[in-house]
Design a protein around this nucleic acid. Structure first.
Length: 487
RNA sequence: GCCCCCAUCGUCUAACGGCUAGGACUCCACUCUUUCAAGGUGGCGGUCGGGGUUCGAUUCCCCGUGGGGGCACCA
């Protein structure tokens, strides 16, 4: 008998981070226990769920690598069973026919909120023997409501919150079957969880106040009541519930921003849970091993994009080889990606070499792709600020240095290695009576077009003699044209 | 209004009555250095308030305050 858990999102169009984290916790628990993870789509119409919305959720789950064992099953498929169970409760006297119109009830709620809680029941009790059945047979529209026990306290043990209790007198007789014959959410959930033999319901704590209703429904239907674990919500930086105005809230947005799904999973796991050790950067396997509902905190957490970025950088640093290369190349234009592949096939170790240089300095794959361009592009643009600082402050000198570098590197360097290049450059600087930095800065600008890059000798090696020399020449030419224009 | 949940640096969190309340992100400084990162070192910064219980409360209890969630013939 293995543990069965489920994730039951309603298809609102995309998988948001809160839902994603709930899904993750379910997945972690299932994988750790060797249990079964069921995906259920809460599509009970109303919010017209389309195939696109469902697909968006499945896509988000797949991106995160949260594979499910059963489903997706659609809640809508169970309406006949839901309806039958509502009728069953009615037959057993655990529910009643309510002819109160929504308008009337709304009016009572306005006038006397306390009375409204039991108003439908009051009306039902005022009916004479058999009257309800007669009116129902006559086709009069009515809902079916569940009888809340009187004067009782529903107590359940929540895996996160511990003992939690609600007094039934504060809960109204909930509608389980609408006038149009459709089942309501709470009944559908209870029915489905029982049908799927869910042992543990892990969901957001916005469902905490639904729980006593569901516990009671389970008991009324003779079901084994599942365990519950209500995980805290994820809030925006302003402490408000995460919404569109907080920026990216869909996991897909983060995929688009160059966030690694491993980093996202790691980050989400750390939102509301901690392993109890100082370790923060964790792989999926480590998370599965370490996860425990007992260590889930009760307090809602604020989503901090900066920490996500940092974690992404950490995962990026641990990623290497083909996996990283594929992701980076996917972000480049075709011709640049082709050039990279060409170079890669010529020198198998080249790709790892460049990516190792770039990934340590990047926090997203987009950033790596951007920084890779100078190594594969035909031409590059020069960053104005860098030009001003490293070339045009002393243009004549810069040109002189670049020319000298070109000559020296073109003729003198038979083995194009970091050590050898460094030797040559430093020797040249000494000959010209300047510090190495005076050559390095203009050179860097000529090679990559900006003032920052990995170590200059590594850049030279990564670029290769042909491309590097062409860049140096192009840089010198560019500066000359500027000097001519100004004189 | 009623019900429920929650409360440690700005943020994520550790400390299941007992060392100067620990770590991480962010920020700052230093270090490494040809630049930028990464790394290393250090710094700033916190137990919401008031009462209890106790030899001793971040920790247990009560009351406030604050925040969140829910109160539908939505899910």
């Amino acid at each position: 008998m293995s543990l069965r858990v489920r994730f039951a999102p309603s298809p609102t169009g995309y998988l948001h981070v809160g839902g994603a984290r709930t899904a993750l916790f379910n997945w972690l628990v299932a994988r750790q226990a060797g249990g079964t993870f069921v995906l259920r789509i809460e599509d009970t119409d109303r919010d017209r769920s389309t195939k696109e919305m469902v697909d968006a959720i499945l896509e988000g789950m797949e991106w995160l690598g949260l594979d499910w064992d059963e489903g997706p099953v659609f809640q809508g498929a169970g309406v006949d069973r839901h309806r039958a169970q509502a009728l069953q409760l009615l037959g057993e006297g655990k529910a009643y026919r309510d002819f109160t119109t929504p308008e009337e009830l709304a009016r009572i709620r306005e006038e006397d909120p306390d009375r409204a809680v039991r108003y439908p029941r009051e009306r039902f009790r005022s009916l004479s023997e058999g009257e309800a059945e007669e009116r129902a047979a006559g086709g009069e529209p009515h809902a079916i409501r569940f009888f809340m026990p009187t004067g009782e306290t529903v107590l359940f043990r929540d895996r996160v919150h511990g003992r939690t209790s609600f007094r039934t007198d504060t809960i109204e007789d909930l509608v389980i079957l609408r006038a149009d014959g459709s089942p309501t959410y709470n009944l559908a959930v209870v029915s489905d969880d029982a049908e799927m033999e869910i042992d543990l319901v892990i969901r957001g704590d916005d469902h905490l106040s639904n729980t006593p209703k569901q516990v009671l429904l389970h008991q009324a239907l003779g079901n084994k009541v599942p365990e519950f674990a209500h995980v805290p919500m994820i809030l925006g930086a302003d402490g408000k519930r995460l919404s569109k105005r907080h920026g990216a809230t869909a996991v897909g947005d983060y995929a688009d921003q160059g966030i690694l799904s491993d980093a996202m999973v790691n980050f989400l796991a750390l939102l509301g849970w901690s392993p109890g050790t100082d370790q923060e950067v964790m792989s999926r396997e480590e998370l599965i091993r370490a996860f425990s509902l007992d260590r889930v905190v009760k307090k809602s957490a604020v989503f901090d994009p900066e920490k996500l970025d940092w974690l992404n950088g950490q995962h990026l640093n641990r990623l290497s080889g083909k996996a990283l290369a594929d992701r980076v190349l996917a972000l480049l234009e075709d011709d640049l990606a082709d050039e990279a592949r060409r170079r890669w096939s010529l020198e198998p170790e080249w790709m790892d070499y460049v990516l190792d240089l770039l990934k340590a300095r990047a926090r997203s794959i987009d950033e790596i792709a951007l920084k890779l361009r100078p190594y594969v592009a035909q031409e590059i643009a020069y960053e104005p600020e860098a030009v001003k600082k490293h070339w045009m402050k002393r243009p004549e000198e810069a040109v002189g240095h670049l020319d000298a570098l070109h000559e020296r590197l073109a003729e003198g360097v038979e083995d194009w290695t970091e050590a050898r290049l460094e030797e040559e450059l430093r020797a040249l600087a000494a000959e010209r009576g300047v510090g190495a930095g005076r050559l390095i800065h203009p050179l860097r600008l000529a090679l990559v077009g900006e003032a920052v890059s990995p170590g200059i000798f590594e850049v030279l090696v990564a670029m290769g003699p042909h491309r590097a020399l062409a860049r140096i020449a192009a840089g010198a030419t560019w500066i000359r044209s500027r000097i001519d224009r100004e004189s």
